[in-house]
Design a protein around this nucleic acid. Structure first.
Ligand code: MN
Ligand code: MN
Ligand code: ZN
Ligand code: ZN
Lengths: 151, 151
DNA sequence: TACTAAATAGTATTTACTCCTATTTGTCAA
DNA sequence: TTGACAAATAGGAGTAAATACTATTTAGTA
């Protein structure tokens, strides 16, 4: 079948589901069938799905699940460290007119984007694997966390 | 006055506006007062504004400007390289259940997010300037461009 | 000065969440 | 095993951001 790179196989998946169940209990979260289903669908793919994409998949198991549940669950997974959001997605688009070489730190709380410049980050060397396969238009070191005001 | 780090000063701003004007003509774009105003407002700040934030500022000069014009203009600036969108903004939120160390390449055309792993990117050393000032929760090397299918 | 394609204003629509509330369910303690 | 209760869910409403549409205006040019 469709046996791609980083997909979790069935045995692994069951083991990870058991671990996830413990993780939920430790975090004081209820182990609901919806939560399990969303978690498992996320692990079964390497396509980095959006909430909507997972919603469509989980609907096949729970036809009456709501998109809000999928969204809330994914945020919960992120909070307990069972999954994470891919950098570069979510939030409103922000613009920059500063064309000098520099990098950005984003505060996850107040959403400020703060410039900094660290020369070693200017010219990152890519592995041949990447530069041969893709047309890389942009390479960035991106930092995220709490700023001096929110820290 | 409020003379922050990377803000463009008035003399610089006028010079850059002249350059921008040429850049527009070279690209076959009309030099409209709205376009100039949006460009100048973007250069005057280091807060990495959203379209909405710039809209509020430009409205003081052109009270009847539409948000759509601001949005379109910013995308145009991005296309001709007069400005750019900050990484980590725009598009729907995407999730990842793969907790192993790895990095992402995003195709700007088909929006696919592709995993890769380059060990040197795993533990980026931050300058003291940053780690002292901020609580860094996440540091990533992020790549953007055209994938093998869209290239 | 007059023509034309490009750009804009204003509005409508779409997308991606986020919030709200009544109902259901997992957990725990009796 | 059952009952109480806080947590979670379904379904719908609300909101924010971006995009699409169309009539009107305007910059570039000839
Ligand atoms: Mn910047
Ligand atoms: Mn990944
Ligand atoms: Zn902050
Ligand atoms: Zn692609």
């Amino acid at each position: 079948m469709n046996n791609k790179n980083n997909k979790t196989n069935t045995i692994e998946l069951d083991e990870k589901t058991r671990q996830f169940t413990s993780q939920c209990r430790e975090a004081g979260l209820k182990v609901t069938p919806q939560r399990i289903a969303i978690y498992r669908e996320l692990l079964k793919t390497d396509e980095h799905p959006s909430a909507e994409m997972l919603y469509e998949k989980v609907k096949k198991i729970f036809p009456s699940i709501s998109l809000d549940t999928v969204n809330r669950t994914l945020l919960t997974l992120n909070e307990i460290g069972a999954a994470f959001t891919v950098v570069g997605s979510g939030d409103a688009r922000r613009f920059d007119g500063g064309l000098h070489e520099h990098q950005h730190f984003r505060c996850v709380k107040c959403k400020r984007i703060i410039d900094f410049h660290h020369k070693p980050f200017d010219n990152i060397k890519l592995p041949a694997e990447i530069s041969e396969k893709f047309t890389v238009l942009r390479k960035t070191v991106y930092l995220e966390g709490l700023c001096n005001l929110c820290g």
